[in-house]
Nucleic acid binder design. Structure first.
Length: 602
RNA sequence: CGGGGCGUAGCGCAGUCCGGUAGCGCACCGCGUUUGGGACGCGGGGGCCGGCGGUUCGAGUCCGCCCGCCCCGACCA
C-alpha cells in the first residue's frame, strides 16, 4: 500500500476524550474513527489487523473441528421468547418492529439461533458432536460504553457453539476451547489468564473468562499466588473467619445515638465490626415465568463484610438489583440505619397492603456461625446486643453473599488472595441443556431415547482483542504490533531529496520486490519530511522499518530497524529481501515460543 | 439510571464571567524553496459557535428546554 493513496491519515494530537492509551493511539494512527457512543468504524489499517486476528481464530477453531457459518443479525422475537431471555434481559437488548409490526431482536449473542438450527438439523446421536462458529456483528446497548474499543455497543465477535450427545462430550469440547483460546491470545501476543466466572445472562453450569490484566480493566479478579486459584470477584469464594461460637446471651436493647453506619456503631460500642450485623436492602427483579416480580430483599451480613451483588442476584435468581429506597425499607417496619431482622416475621409479610413488595430475607452463610451480634432495633437511636440467628430470627435463604477482598484467604489453600484488574477478552460457557430444553432441541440416542442436546458457547470479541493488544504493545512514540497481527509487515520509508530520482526508483523497486516475495508493505512514498515519516512509522507501529535514502544508497545499502528495538543497521540492497524475511521469521518464532499448553483449571 | 465535565473549522484549543459582524496552532489547497526525526516563505479555502425557544436594537456570550460526547458510579460479555 502506498501511503500517498491511503484513505486514513494520522493525527498529531489525539481527540481530547480519548483517555486510555489504546484508544488514543488507535485514533491517532488512523485505525479507528468513532461514529457515536460505543460505535466505531474500522479504517483500512484496523480492518487488516482484525482480519489477521480473525484468521488466527479461524485456524484455531478449525483445528478443533469447528465449521464456520454465518447467522443473521436480526432475529424474530419468538426465539428469544421461547428461552424467556426476551423477558429477562432489559434495555441492553436491541428491539424493533418490522413493517408488519412483528417484534424483532438485534442479535446480542446467538444461542437461540443456534438452538433453532440444531433442532431442525440434528435428529440423531450420529450427528453429534458438532462445533459451529461464526464471526459476526453483535449489538448490546450497554448503558456505558467506555475506553474506545474496550467496551462498545456494536462489536464483532467470534462465537462458537458446541453440540454434544453427552456431558463427557461437552467437557471435551470445553477443554478443547480452553486451550484453543490460549493459543489464539498467545499467537496475537496478548498475555491472558483464565479465571472462573459468573455465568451471567447466559445461564448454564460453568464458565471461564480470559482476562488481560491491566489497570484500565473493569473487572476485579482475585488471584492466589500459592495455589493458582483465580476467579472473578463476582463469584470469588474465600475463607471466612468465623468467630468462636459463644453461649447465646439474652437480647439487650442499648441506646446508640447517631450510629447509622457500622463504623460509627462499632466505635460507639467499642467492639470490632465483626461483632455486628449489617442490613442491606435491595429491590430485585425476579423472573417468574413470563413476568418479572419486584421483591424487597433484606440481606444480612456480618458488619465487617461487603455485599457482593452478583452472589446475591445469583442466590435469588434475580435479573436486576437496585438499592431500595428509604420508603420501601420503612414499608416493612424497618428503620434505615437501625434496621433489624429481629421482629420482622417473614411469614406474616407478603403481598399485603402495608408492603407493596413481597419480602425476601436472606443471610450470609457466616451469620448462623456468628453469635451474639449487635443488630439494629428498628428504632432510631437503638441497637440490640446478643442477636442470634435461629433463636431471634430466621431467613428464607442462607447463602454466600459477601465479596472477597484483597488479603482474604484463598478458598483452596488459605493463602492471602491478591486483587488485580482485568479486561475480559474471551469467555467459555458450559451451557448444558438450558437452551435445548427451552426450545426442544433433541436427538435420538443410541438407546432409542429422546434427549436434549448438550451445548456450550464460546466467545472472543475481535475489536476488544485488538484494543487490548494495542494497550499491551506500545511505547511513547506509538503502537508496536506483534508481527502476527500487524496490518503490514514492513514500513518502507523513502527519503527522496530534490536530486535523488535514483532513491525514488530504488525505493519503488524494493517496494515491488518485497511484495513479490510475499511481504506485505506499507510504502511511505509521500512528499513529506523525514521527521514526519519516521514519526508516522513509529505511531503506526509495523514490526520492521526499512529506510531507503541517498545516504544509505551511497553505501549500496538500506537501513533496517525493528519497531521494538532501538538499534538500526544497514543491509546491502541485494540482501534486503532475504534479511526482511529473516527478521520477520525471527519475530514470528519469538511469538510462537509463547504458544504453549496451559494446564486446565476447573 | 445517579454524580461530574465538555460541545466554537478535520484535530487541539482561546473567546462566554463583563452581549457589539469569530480567532490561534496543526491539518488542508496553490506556487516556490527544503529533505535522516513532526521544515520554510508567500498566497488561499473552510464555521447555521450542538439544536430549539426566549430576553435584547443586537446573542458564541444571558435565560429555559432538549440533544450529543467523555469521565466516575450503578450495570454489563
Amino acid at each position: 500500500m502506498r501511503m500517498s493513496q491511503m484513505f486514513s491519515q494520522t493525527l498529531r494530537e489525539a481527540p481530547g476524550d480519548a483517555e486510555t492509551t489504546s484508544h488514543a493511539l488507535l485514533l491517532r494512527a488512523g485505525f479507528i474513527r468513532q461514529l457515536a457512543a460505543g460505535i466505531f468504524t474500522a479504517m483500512p489499517l484496523a480492518r487488516r489487523t482484525l482480519t489477521r486476528l480473525e484468521n488466527i481464530m479461524r485456524e484455531e477453531m478449525n483445528a478443533i473441528g469447528g465449521q464456520e457459518i454465518t447467522m443473521p443479525v436480526v432475529h424474530p422475537a419468538e426465539l428469544w421468547q421461547e428461552t424467556e431471555r426476551w423477558y429477562q434481559i432489559g434495555s441492553e437488548m436491541g428491539r424493533f418492529k418490522d413493517k408488519n409490526l412483528r417484534d424483532m431482536v438485534l442479535g446480542m449473542t446467538h444461542e437461540e439461533v443456534v438452538t433453532d438450527l440444531a433442532r431442525k438439523e440434528i435428529q440423531s446421536y450420529r450427528q453429534l458432536p458438532r462445533l459451529i462458529y461464526q464471526i459476526q456483528t453483535k449489538w448490546r446497548d450497554d448503558p456505558r460504553p467506555r475506553a474506545g474499543l474496550i467496551r462498545v455497543r456494536e462489536f464483532t465477535m467470534k462465537d462458537s457453539y458446541s453440540l454434544d450427545a453427552d456431558w463427557e462430550g461437552l467437557d471435551k469440547q470445553y477443554r478443547a476451547h480452553y486451550q484453543a483460546y490460549f493459543n489464539i491470545f498467545h499467537r496475537c501476543g496478548l498475555p491472558v489468564i483464565a479465571v472462573k466466572s459468573d455465568v451471567g445472562m447466559m445461564g448454564g453450569k460453568l464458565a471461564h473468562e480470559y482476562m488481560y490484566l491491566t489497570p484500565i480493566g473493569e473487572d476485579t479478579l482475585l488471584l492466589c499466588d500459592a495455589c493458582s486459584y483465580s476467579a472473578n470477584r463476582q463469584i470469588a469464594a474465600f475463607r471466612k473467619q468465623a468467630a468462636p461460637m459463644e453461649q447465646p446471651l439474652p437480647i439487650e436493647k442499648v441506646a446508640t445515638p447517631e450510629t447509622k453506619t457500622i463504623a460509627a456503631l462499632a466505635e460507639f460500642l467499642s467492639i470490632p465490626a465483626s461483632r455486628t450485623a449489617k442490613a442491606v436492602f435491595m429491590v430485585a427483579k425476579v423472573p417468574e415465568g413470563q413476568v418479572t416480580v419486584d421483591k424487597l430483599v433484606f440481606a444480612v451480613l456480618r458488619g465487617d463484610m461487603e455485599l457482593n451483588e452478583t452472589k446475591l442476584a445469583n442466590a435469588l435468581k434475580a435479573s436486576e438489583l437496585r438499592p431500595a429506597h428509604d420508603e420501601e425499607i420503612a414499608s416493612i417496619g424497618a428503620v434505615p440505619g437501625y434496621a433489624s431482622p429481629v421482629g420482622i416475621d417473614p411469614a406474616s409479610l407478603g403481598y399485603s397492603d402495608q408492603t407493596p413488595l413481597p419480602l425476601v430475607i436472606i443471610v450470609d452463610d457466616l451469620i448462623p456461625q456468628s453469635s451474639n451480634l449487635v443488630a439494629g432495633a428498628n428504632e432510631a437511636g437503638y441497637h440490640l446486643r446478643n442477636v442470634n440467628y435461629g433463636r431471634d430470627y430466621t431467613a428464607h435463604l442462607v447463602a454466600d453473599l459477601t465479596a472477597a477482598r484483597d488479603g482474604d484467604g484463598c478458598p483452596r489453600c488459605g493463602s492471602p488472595l491478591r486483587t488485580v484488574r482485568g479486561v475480559e477478552v474471551g469467555n467459555i460457557f458450559k451451557l448444558g441443556t438450558r437452551y435445548s430444553d427451552a426450545m426442544g432441541a433433541t436427538f435420538l440416542d443410541k438407546d432409542g431415547k429422546e434427549k436434549s442436546i448438550i451445548m456450550g458457547s464460546y466467545g472472543i470479541g475481535s475489536g476488544r482483542l485488538m484494543a487490548c493488544i494495542a494497550e499491551e504493545h506500545n511505547d511513547e512514540n506509538g503502537l508496536i504490533w506483534p508481527v502476527t497481527v500487524a496490518p503490514y509487515h514492513v514500513h518502507l520509508v523513502a527519503l527522496v531529496g530534490k536530486d535523488s530520482e535514483e532513491t525514488r526508483q530504488q525505493a519503488d523497486k524494493l517496494y515491488t520486490d518485497l511484495q513479490a516475495a510475499g511481504i506485505e508493505v506499507l510504502f511511505d512514498d509521500r512528499d513529506e519530511s523525514p521527521g514526519v515519516k519516521f514519526n508516522d512509522a513509529d505511531l503506526i507501529g509495523l514490526p520492521v522499518r526499512i529506510t531507503v535514502s541517498q545516504r544509505s544508497l551511497q553505501q549500496g545499502s538500506v537501513e533496517f530497524k525493528r519497531r521494538d528495538r532501538k538499534e538500526k543497521f544497514l543491509v546491502s540492497l541485494d540482501a534486503a529481501i532475504s534479511r526482511a524475511q529473516q527478521e520477520l521469521d525471527t519475530l514470528r518464532s519469538e511469538i510462537q515460543a509463547k504458544v504453549v499448553p496451559v494446564p486446565y483449571e476447573d
